[in-house]
């Protein structure tokens, strides 16, 4: 636990002091800002603004955003040689992985939290009529979704030495986990299609959280994905000791 806290603290501090992190945050805020303005622009044409518009965007953007965050987590430590010190310190491998994951997730959470400002603005300009609870539900969903994407990204960061390869593979995997929601359009056997779809991240967000329905099973799903992915990452890091 001490190890998790220490590594988490270092990660967070490194996000707050790295220009790269601010650049990404600014880019995300710019894009979501444009989206938000568009969304209320449309609502002046008598269409109510979609409370889940920003989270919906994240569901897609995470395909690129999450690997960008996670690719460096372990690969950079390996490159700088600090992984050797981490692994020879009296810290468990799980502390290292969980601490780093928690740091990345916290950074993502902060960016997500900033975009919640839009909902508050909407609440003001719509005379308090925004479906804030629905928006909150979508945000909870996309927060978990993001955690799962980061966990998937970490597996690839641990599995490959090369950052670019790690990012590329993670992107490809996340793309499949996103587009797989529509697997039924290509696979005629509905049971197979349904099984595959059930494994995708998007299917546990788009038809529940995004429409304002909080389902325990989706929370279990995302928590499970995070747990399994972190477990695999830990095993991969650990394999350095016996390979």
């Amino acid at each position: 636990m001490n190890g998790v806290r220490t590594i988490f603290g270092r990660e967070i501090a490194s996000y707050f002091t790295s220009l790269f992190a601010y650049l990404i945050a600014a880019a995300v805020l710019l894009i979501t800002g444009i989206l938000f303005i568009n969304n209320i622009g449309r609502s002046q044409d008598q269409v109510a603004p979609n409370p889940a518009a920003i989270p919906d965007f994240f569901a897609f953007a995470l395909i690129f955003f999450a690997p960008l965050l996670t690719m460096r987590l372990l690969a950079e430590e390996r490159r700088e040689g600090t992984l050797e010190l981490l692994l020879t310190s009296p810290t468990s491998d799980s502390s290292i992985v969980i601490g780093k994951f928690a740091g990345a997730w916290a950074y993502y959470t902060i960016i997500l939290a900033i975009t919640f400002v839009y909902q508050v603005i909407l609440l003001n300009i719509s005379q308090g009529q925004t479906d804030l609870a629905h928006a909150l539900c979508a945000y909870i969903g996309i927060w978990l979704y993001g955690g799962a994407c980061l966990a998937v990204g970490m597996v690839f960061s641990a599995a490959t030495d090369n950052q670019i390869v790690a990012a590329f593979l993670a992107s490809a995997a996340l793309f499949l986990l996103w587009i797989g929601d529509r697997v039924g359009e290509v696979i005629p056997n509905i049971n197979v299609a349904r099984f595959i779809r059930e494994l995708t991240l998007q299917s546990h967000y788009a038809s529940s959280f995004a429409v304002g329905l909080l389902r325990a099973e989706d929370i279990v799903f995302f928590a499970g994905i995070i747990a399994v992915m972190l477990f695999i990452t830990i095993r991969l890091v650990e394999s350095n000791r016996w390979r």
């Binding site: 629905h134 909150l136 304002g212 329905l213 909080l214 389902r215 279990v220 799903f221």
Partner: peptide
Amino acid sequence: FLYVRERVITFDMTQ
């Protein structure tokens, strides 16, 4: 997951 899904625990957050 399957257990929780069978239980259908949902919370409607729409206004």
